[in-house]
Amino acid sequence: MYSALYYGNKDIRIIEKDIPKIGAGEILIKVEASGICGSDVIEWYRRDKVPLVLGHEVTGVIADAGKDVTGHKVGDRVCVAHHVPCNTCKYCIDGHQTMCETLRSTNFDPGGFSEFLRLSKINVKNGIYLLPDSVGFEEGTFVEPLACVVRGQRLAGVKPGDTVVVIGSGLAGLLHISLLKATGVTRIIATDINEKRLDYAKKFGADYVFNAGNKDLNLSETVKEISDGFLADVVILATGAGSAILQGLKSARRGGIVLFFGAADEGAMLPLSINEIFWRTEITLVSSYAGSILDHRLALEFIRTNRINVKDMISERLPMRDIARGFELTAKAQDSLKIIIKPDRLDA
């Protein structure tokens, strides 16, 4: 089979390797679609692990099932989770499945940017979801990223009547905006420095959009004008830019919540004054990482029922032979949103 081996954003090599062999309780997936995630292009996060085959937003068909596999069969259309929890440790019991050591050590063999991948026994047990006939393979690749968004908003305690500011309108921000709209949030305010992305933010449900690069913009005062004199109930940081973080912290009301969702630059520190931001404000900082089994199931249901339109977020569909182009577009973070890689036979 062919796989895409990642060394860096500008160094991705198509290699040929053996199709993984499966054992008892394991499953072989024929990959039909894999999404390129924004985290895939964070080079500092990968540099000590390269070379490796990336790709964790995956759908496909079960090509083979090992002995003792129950509940799944050859031919099933599925979406699969690369990280899965044990469901028995302290983290899992306390509802923090994404902090589970098992979740952080599990993965695909080799990765979603391949023609085939092997699911280990625990991945089969806790990380495989049947795709309804109404959900296409490409749409199914959004289950994993949307699950992360579902979890983040749940941890942030978002409520329908809230005023929510989403800082950053890339793919993650658009998924947040779409989920906010689907769950009845009354005021959704979105920012970005890219006008095209602000157009997308409007399309997917933002009530107000503002260019964060506008030097005349005072976001906190603007939020007050929109929200009857109050700052935001919840601020979602869907970008890790330092200026955006500071802007977000200043936009949360007393007793409000700031959700740290997007990864920041390597070594980034919080640029804040404890007295100005926290003392007497009761502002809560919340972080979220990945998605639990429940989050994946909820995400799939949002997609199945068309409450969240992910199909229109796909900007490019590329064969694996053009994956370098997909990484280039994702790393530039300009007009492209979600890029889907379709594994292909290079020797066909």
Score class of each variant (00 low, 15 high):
S3F: 04
Y6D: 06
G8Q: 05
G8T: 07
K10W: 14
R13Y: 07
P20Q: 03
P20N: 05
I22R: 00
I22G: 08
G25D: 03
G35I: 03
K49R: 15
V53F: 02
T59R: 07
D64A: 15
T70A: 11
H72N: 12
V78D: 10
V80P: 05
C86M: 05
N87M: 12
N87Y: 12
T98P: 08
S114C: 07
F116Q: 09
F116E: 06
R118W: 03
N126E: 08
G127F: 01
P132D: 02
D133R: 11
V143C: 03
A156R: 00
A156C: 02
V166C: 02
G168Q: 07
I177Q: 01
I177T: 05
S178G: 03
G184P: 09
T191F: 06
N194V: 14
L198M: 10
K203I: 02
G205Q: 02
D207M: 10
N211G: 11
N214H: 01
D216P: 06
L219W: 04
L219F: 07
K224L: 04
D228S: 12
D228N: 14
F230M: 11
L231H: 08
V234C: 03
I236E: 11
A241G: 09
G242W: 01
G242R: 14
L246A: 14
V258T: 12
A263L: 15
A264I: 08
N275M: 14
T281V: 01
S288V: 07
Y289M: 13
A290V: 08
G291P: 02
H296V: 02
H296I: 05
I314G: 07
P319T: 04
R321W: 12
R321S: 15
R325W: 10
G326L: 14
F327T: 10
E328D: 06
I340W: 05
